[in-house]
């Protein structure tokens, strides 16, 4: 068996989720190759070649791949897939955008967001906002899979010495063009990989008030997350949303502040090691899953907590 992992990268380095995906590939077992598709992506390809357990890197370097649009990346995957038993991508907005496009053309039913590998054809995945876990067995010849990063450890980014091969068959689809990107800039660790996450909800009340959440996160060296209500209200950007339809996180410590604990929010954080909830409503559902609950006004206790740490 050989497995192709689709790298998520910014042309110079690999995104963390790529390493978790390599671990999922290793659990399936077999030769692991990585596809790095981008523009001037030598550095990302070298980083991929250094990942422990990877035997080959396929580098598709072309001008039209700069923004890795699905319409341009999927044809490369379709072309390469025939040589593999499995094709894996991280279950990030990148992987979710690209992989089903390849799966449809390959006439394969993709398996989304796996949380465990039971065997080469059987996987577990959460459904219904994580309220049930389905074990599914695929009958497709080539298995296309997206991988939930939080449930697989990151592969060692060093120790590998894979060969790098050029892929030259890429051509522009002409279907879609990149216009612009507005990326959040932050000195904080990436939300999905942070050891500590402090999230704020509607209870925080305004964008200005979010400063107290950020201060606490900075004191703990953590990332800042949010509920959908906080994003919808414009307190924080969309990429802070944790939940069923946002990001999934599983840090050592998750602090939910002014968040009620709707099913959809829990779906994105209930695998955290230790959960703290701060809420003034003692009946808030978040307390049903919190290891430590503090019934209090967040505007009193969050600054106090930050001050005392």
């Amino acid at each position: 068996m050989s497995i192709l992992v689709i790298a998520e990268h910014d042309n110079s380095s690999l995104k963390a989720a790529t390493l978790n995906t390599v671990t999922a590939a290793a659990k399936i077992g077999g030769d692991i190759h990585i596809l790095v598709a981008g523009t001037s992506c030598d550095a990302a390809a070298s980083a991929a070649a250094a990942v422990n357990g990877v035997s080959k890197v396929i580098k598709a370097d072309a001008a039209h791949l700069e923004h890795q649009l699905a319409e341009d990346v999927a044809p490369i995957i379709i072309d390469l897939a025939k040589g593999y038993s499995h094709v894996l991508a991280p279950a990030t907005t990148f992987g979710k955008n690209v992989l089903p496009r390849a799966a449809a053309v390959l006439d394969t039913q993709q398996i989304s967001d796996i949380i465990s590998v039971e065997s080469a054809d059987t996987f577990k995945r959460p459904v219904y906002a994580g309220n049930a876990i389905a074990t599914v067995k695929s009958s497709d010849d080539i298995k296309l899979i997206t991988v939930r990063g939080t449930t697989f450890d990151a592969a060692d980014a060093t120790g590998g010495s894979a060969s790098i091969e050029d892929y030259t068959g890429a051509s522009a689809s002409g279907l879609s063009t990149f216009v612009s990107a507005e990326l959040s800039k932050s000195e904080r660790p990436e939300l999905t990989a942070a050891k500590v996450v402090v999230s704020g909800g509607r209870g925080v009340g305004s964008a200005e008030n979010f400063a107290i959440i950020e201060k606490l996160a900075d004191k703990l060296g953590g990332a800042v997350g949010a509920s959908r209500a906080a994003v919808d209200a414009g307190y924080v950007p969309n990429d802070y949303q944790v939940g069923q339809t946002g990001k999934v996180v599983a840090p050592d410590l998750y602090i939910a502040v002014g968040i009620s604990g709707a099913i959809q929010h829990l779906a994105g954080m209930k695998d955290s090691k230790v959960i703290v909830a701060i809420n003034k409503d003692e009946d808030a559902p978040i307390f049903n899953i919190a290891d430590y609950g503090l019934v209090a006004d967040l505007f009193d206790v969050v600054p106090e907590l930050e001050g005392k740490l």
Partner: peptide
Amino acid sequence: REIDGGLETVSLK
């Protein structure tokens, strides 16, 4: 588009 890093705008026909 809402992506993991923020927002991205594309033009389609």
